[in-house]
């Protein structure tokens, strides 16, 4: 049967993997290529590399980092950050990525989703949504851009639907409220998005334990879940996590 995916995320700044709490308070976690290989060997089903400062500083994605990381990586590899045009996406694919993740640029010009898909297929386009709940909770959760710096006024569920209709292959939903807290995913928000679209939804933000993953795959109806800090600092590996998930009745890829 189709398994739930565990995705290891590398947030990269200035060529190094970093990890923040609620998008700030950044600490160094190592070399991207080395960490990508380590995660794949430790059982991660996919690797995501996000150049978290690219949009903010208006510079291109670190193609050389992508090339190095992709060189011997034989699991799906997604790259995000600084992809603003179909040409930017092509450069990232040529460097070895299988999918691109677009966020701010898709909000600024939603046509970009279809333009990348036309050349590389819908499966290669992930629309990333950074979300923060409003006063009404899930209902008025709002989309943020520029690494969580700017509110857009867009409702999360509505934007997810539009991204799907424009040809997104997957949605990567990050809760800014839970990000880096290791206190669990925002299952309610994830379920709302997952029920609104047909395409797979990747939950992100708040992973701290196997129970959190089991919860977001169950109650949160996520197809995949992404985490960063719990892997980088050796709290757990994907393999340990998957053993615990199997015990909890979640179907995951094993052996890996």
């Amino acid at each position: 049967m189709l398994t739930k995916r565990i995705i290891a995320c590398l947030d990269v700044r200035d060529g190094r993997v970093v990890k923040g709490v609620q998008f700030v308070d950044i600490v160094d976690a190592g070399d991207p290529a080395e960490l990508a290989h380590r995660h794949a060997a430790a059982g991660a089903d996919e690797i995501v590399l996000l150049d978290i400062t690219a949009t903010h500083e208006a510079r291109g994605t670190l193609l050389e980092t992508v090339r190095r990381a992709a060189a011997r990586l034989f699991v799906p590899f997604t790259v995000g950050g600084g992809v603003r045009t179909a040409d930017d996406a092509a450069a990232v694919f040529n460097a070895g990525a299988d999918k691109v993740s677009i966020n701010s640029a898709a909000i600024a010009r939603p046509e970009l989703i279809g333009e990348i898909g036309a050349n590389f297929g819908a499966q290669a386009v992930i629309v990333a949504i950074d979300a923060r709940r409003g006063t009404k909770g899930v209902e008025d959760a709002e989309v943020y851009v520029s690494g969580g710096r700017k509110p857009t006024g867009l409702r999360v569920v509505e934007w997810a639907r539009e991204a799907e209709s424009r040809g997104a292959g997957e949605i990567l939903l990050t809760s800014m409220d839970t990000d880096g807290m290791r206190d669990g995913f925002d299952c309610e928000l994830t379920a709302a998005v997952s029920e609104a679209v047909q395409i797979p939804v990747i939950a992100s933000g708040g992973a701290g334990s196997a129970e959190h993953f089991a919860d977001v795959f169950g109650r949160g109806k996520a197809d995949a879940a992404l985490a960063a800090s719990i892997f980088h600092f050796g709290v757990t590996s994907s393999r340990e996590l998957k053993a615990q998930l199997t015990s909890a009745g979640v179907s995951v890829r094993l052996p890996c």
Partner: peptide, 10 residues
């Protein structure tokens, strides 16, 4: 049934 079918299957 969601589609596309994306991910690891046996």
């Amino acid at each position: 049934l969601k589609s596309p079918h994306v991910g690891w299957n046996s």
